[in-house]
Amino acid sequence: MTSVALDPPMAREALSRRLSSVLFAKRGLLVTLLLVPPLLWLGVVYVGSLIALLIQSFFSIDEFSGTIVREFTLKTYAELLRPANLDVILRTLAIATFVTFASAVLAFPIAYYAARYARGRTKATFYIAIVMPLWSSYLVKVYAWKLLLAKEGAVAWGADRLGATPMVDALLSMPFVGGPSLSVSYLGQALVFAYLWLPFMILPIQAALERVPASLIEASADLGAAPGQTFRTVTLPLALPGVAAGSIFTFSLTLGDYILPQIIGPSTLLLGQTVYVLQGTAGNIPLAAAFAVVPIIVMGFYLFAAKRLGAFDAF
């Protein structure tokens, strides 16, 4: 009787053990089983849709009927070079460059402190403070900034109280970056972009700095380098891969964003908005696709240049 009662669990165990033995003996099978689902996801959903997009960009639209002509052509790409479209691309690139630069300047001291000095509780607090803005709604943050930057908003009020209104006015009267108020100027737009993407810049820089052993800093001092020299010749080059990684985020996120520029900044369109309008109201999918290819190409060149400049040499 007892043996009958014991049989079923024994059999189950034997089955799972036998499966384990088979998988142990055939490592390739296990790897395949584990990798096929994510590879399918990556291949079909990510790369597949990207290729579909690329293909679309080589189609064109019939100007009279508004239908898509499914024949290979470079006509759509030529359209990108029209002054109005080129203007969108260059303006977006300028803003993304500025945002990236501003993020790096803001992020570096924070990342440096968090990596080199903060310990225990302080470090945990820093982590949470850096990551917490990512937990709240993107739209809420952008609208909050709109109110802060508005003509009668908190920033204007604070500037007034501090007697800094002339400074703000001077900034707003600058050509291109200025405007009637911060909330409708490129300056305000770039500021909010930099605010939104800051965690994406801080975290990689912090990770890179944490990989720099303290003995390297000591060795540099030992060899006669004052702290400033050590920073330029050792710390900064070793943190550069982190800056490069962070800038990939800030740059590409700015290139693609289409919500923030609708809410903050001047009424002229940025690249992301243009894609949104073209594929939505205008129904010009080929041109939208061609526009969407621009950030990919720009990022490609950007990474190539970063590599050539030695940003990844520390690896």
Binding site: L216, A219, S220, V234, P237, L238, A314
Partner: peptide, 8 residues
């Protein structure tokens, strides 16, 4: 002790 050579 860990030589502390500059990796870059």
């Amino acid at each position: 002790q860990d030589y502390a050579l500059f990796p870059h």
